[in-house]
Measured scan of single mutants.
Amino acid sequence: MQRVNMIMAESPGLITICLLGYLLSAECTVFLDHENANKILNRPKRYNSGKLEEFVQGNLERECMEEKCSFEEAREVFENTERTTEFWKQYVDGDQCESNPCLNGGSCKDDINSYECWCPFGFEGKNCELDVTCNIKNGRCEQFCKNSADNKVVCSCTEGYRLAENQKSCEPAVPFPCGRVSVSQTSKLTRAETVFPDVDYVNSTEAETILDNITQSTQSFNDFTRVVGGEDAKPGQFPWQVVLNGKVDAFCGGSIVNEKWIVTAAHCVETGVKITVVAGEHNIEETEHTEQKRNVIRIIPHHNYNAAINKYNHDIALLELDEPLVLNSYVTPICIADKEYTNIFLKFGSGYVSGWGRVFHKGRSALVLQYLRVPLVDRATCLRSTKFTIYNNMFCAGFHEGGRDSCQGDSGGPHVTEVEGTSFLTGIISWGEECAMKGKYGIYTKVSRYVNWIKEKTKLT
């Protein structure tokens, strides 16, 4: 034993070699072989497995989906700052455009905790909710729209109204504003409101030439003092309507412009014939205590009207009353817009006519005020429907199939267009061939041609 100890002390290297040989010859039971080890760690190889990531292109799944990435790591994937920024906006807080917040056709661009709407022409605001041009839906104005110097929408209202708090709607500024039905039992019968379409306001006024200088022999019209197929109006439903009495009662109609003036057809009036105007009328054979009678003290036909040349060209006249009318729910003026808007309103496509005229061709006159909704007829169809001249200051309205029309005794009465609950004068009943005849239409004086003249002559002093 002493000898062994001496050998170990003198030859430590020998001992180490012996131990190493023993270990190498022993069977290893701690580690699995290569094949079995792979069965336990069965993990798919990654895209760049075996390579240094710093030297390969980034992978979106590896960089940002398996674990949260930084902007720089995302930049490695896209290799483009702009594309990385677009991805980053949604990656950080989701897609803010998912709810489609942009209105009126706006395009949404996502941002971090926010979004941006790219608005089409005519709109602005956070969600493109603000109209900035009158060309689109009248700028959301209830009545009139004008573009300011910086191309912003400025709404306005006709006389007797003021802008509401929203700067879009119009509200009454006087007790009985024009064009409004205020009798409670008839307010439910107000005709369907007309909503502004998209309009090209630059070209809204037709490029028409008034044929002022045409000389033409007097034409022989049949029954051209021209509501057939209409309905009984309720008291106060058309408070701007008046009836004219002269040699015979209810020979023509008219509309209240203001307390002192009536507008009617020029062919209705004769110099030297006494005319009485009755406002607030409903049943011409009954006294309903809503009527107001006034005498006409002055007749002003349009300066281009000449019955000797043509009885229905420039067929418009103004009547001055001896005493002002007292405005109330049964006696209310009709609204008159400017030339541009009167023309736009007419193009809405349908209007209402009213009167006490004959209820059928050569038949009896109506006792109760009649009204009828009539569609506008395109000019080409209008011209083809008659052998008589249709001037540019006239328009056609009615039904091709016949059966409904204005008729004798309705002449001078109103053709009105309702705009968001307020009625505007767009025409004056003038003439036609018979009444409600198939293929024939009622012919009306186009008020847009005469609004400046009306307003100039009827100013209240």
Rank of each mutant, 00 (worst) to 15 (best):
N283I: 09
S156D: 09
E323R: 05
C170Y: 00
N313D: 07
I300M: 07
F221T: 09
I309H: 11
G432W: 05
I454W: 00
S365C: 04
E270G: 09
A380V: 09
E320Y: 03
H314V: 03
E193W: 10
S204F: 15
W453Y: 02
H361G: 10
A164F: 03
V174G: 06
I17G: 02
T133G: 12
L367Y: 11
N80C: 04
N283D: 14
T264M: 02
P12V: 13
I336Q: 01
L369M: 14
E259M: 05
N166L: 02
T29S: 13
S354N: 09
T264S: 06
I299S: 13
Q167D: 09
N306C: 04
A233W: 07
E66F: 04
F388P: 06
N310C: 05
E79F: 08
E286I: 13
I136S: 13
T158P: 04
F196I: 14
R191L: 14
C134I: 03
C268A: 01
K137D: 15
K311V: 07
V326R: 09
V227E: 14
T342M: 03
F395R: 02
T218F: 10
H303C: 04
L211Y: 07
G106D: 00
I256C: 00
G236I: 06
C382M: 02
E231G: 10
R226D: 10
G21D: 03
S365V: 11
S255T: 15
G58F: 07
K455M: 06
E66W: 04
P12G: 12
D223G: 09
E124S: 04
A173Y: 10
V30F: 14
K168E: 07
A366S: 05
L425I: 04
P44C: 04
N222P: 07
G439T: 09
N310Q: 07
E208W: 08
K459F: 07
L23W: 08
K362P: 07
G351L: 01
M6I: 05
T218V: 10
A26R: 01
F121L: 08
C69D: 05
E171P: 03
S169P: 01
Q216A: 14
N42A: 11
N203F: 06
K247I: 10
A337F: 01
K109C: 02
E67S: 07
N343R: 07
V248C: 05
H314G: 04
K89P: 15
I210L: 13
I336E: 00
N213R: 10
L23T: 03
S220K: 13
T290H: 15
Y312G: 04
H302N: 04
R404H: 15
N245Q: 08
G13F: 14
N203E: 09
G94D: 10
T426M: 00
